[in-house]
C-alpha cells in the first residue's frame, strides 16, 4: 500500500511536470506576465500534489490541472471586478458581427493569410492580453480549455447568460482588434462600416444596403 502510494506519487509528479509548458502558456495569457504566470503554475502544481488523491488516473490530467490553475487565478490573482461596470450589460445588438463584410471575414481567416500567421498569432496574444479580465477568462476557458458554458459558469461563479454575454463581447473585441490589424496590414480592404468600434451598434438597414440585400 505504502509502496503503491509512493509509486503513484512519483508518476503523478512526473506527469504533472510534463504539463508544465501547457500550464505556463495558459498562465501567461491569464496573468500577462511571466513572473506571475510562473508563480501561478507553481501554486497549481503544489495544490494538485496535495489533492492528488482526487485525481483519477487515466482521466485527462491536463484538464484537471487547468481547472486548478483557473480557480487559483480567479481566487488569488484577480484584482476584483472593477472592469465589470464598464463592459457588462446586455449585448446591444445581436447582429454586431455584421460590421464587416463576408469578404473581410473570409480574408481574416483565409489560408492566404497563412504567411502572416506568426504575426497574427502575436496579434491575438496581445489582443487577448488587452481584453478585460472577465472577458479574457471566459474566452480562455471556452477556447483553450474547451469547457462548456455550464462548466465555465461553475468555475467563474456566474450565471450561464453572463458567461455567454462575456464570451460574445470578448470575441467581438478580439475580432475588432484583428480586423484593425488586418486593415493596417492590407489583408482586408476598408469598407463602409469600418472605423466603428466593434461595440458600436451597426445600422442594420445601412448594412443590408451595403450588402445589396443578398439575404
Amino acid at each position: 500500500m505504502a509502496l503503491d502510494l509512493l509509486a503513484n506519487t512519483a508518476s503523478f509528479e512526473q506527469e504533472a511536470m510534463s504539463h508544465l509548458g501547457g500550464l505556463l502558456a495558459v498562465g501567461l495569457r491569464l496573468t500577462k506576465n511571466r513572473a506571475d504566470a510562473e508563480d501561478l503554475v507553481q501554486d497549481t502544481c503544489m495544490k494538485a500534489m496535495r489533492a492528488r488523491e482526487h485525481f483519477q488516473p487515466g482521466t485527462n490530467m491536463r484538464a484537471w490541472l487547468l481547472r486548478i490553475l483557473t480557480n487559483t487565478f480567479i481566487n488569488r490573482y484577480r484584482r476584483g471586478g472593477r472592469e465589470k461596470a464598464l463592459f457588462e450589460g446586455p449585448s446591444a445588438d445581436p447582429l454586431s458581427d455584421g460590421w464587416v463584410s463576408s469578404t473581410s471575414m473570409r480574408s481574416l481567416r483565409d489560408p492566404e493569410g497563412v504567411a502572416l500567421q506568426p504575426m497574427l498569432e502575436a496579434e491575438i496574444q496581445s489582443a487577448l492580453d488587452a481584453l478585460p479580465e472577465d472577458f479574457r477568462i471566459v474566452v480562455l476557458l471556452a477556447d483553450v480549455e474547451e469547457m462548456g458554458y455550464r462548466e465555465i459558469a461553475d468555475v467563474v461563479g456566474c450565471p450561464i447568460g453572463t458567461v455567454m454575454s462575456r464570451l460574445h463581447r470578448g470575441r467581438q473585441l478580439l475580432k475588432a482588434r484583428l480586423y484593425q490589424h488586418a486593415l493596417e496590414m492590407g489583408i482586408v480592404g476598408p469598407e463602409a462600416e469600418v472605423g466603428k468600434s466593434a461595440s458600436a451598434p451597426v445600422d442594420l438597414a445601412n448594412y443590408r444596403s451595403s450588402k445589396g440585400g443578398t439575404r
Binding site: 508544465l20 501547457g22 498569432e121 496574444q125 487577448l128 477556447d143 478580439l174
Partner: peptide, 15 residues
C-alpha cells in the same frame, strides 16, 4: 478565431 486563440495559449510555452 477559436483555433487561433487556442493556438496562442498552447504554443508559446517555453519552460
Amino acid at each position: 478565431l477559436r483555433v487561433s486563440v487556442r493556438r496562442s495559449a498552447r504554443g508559446a510555452s517555453d519552460v
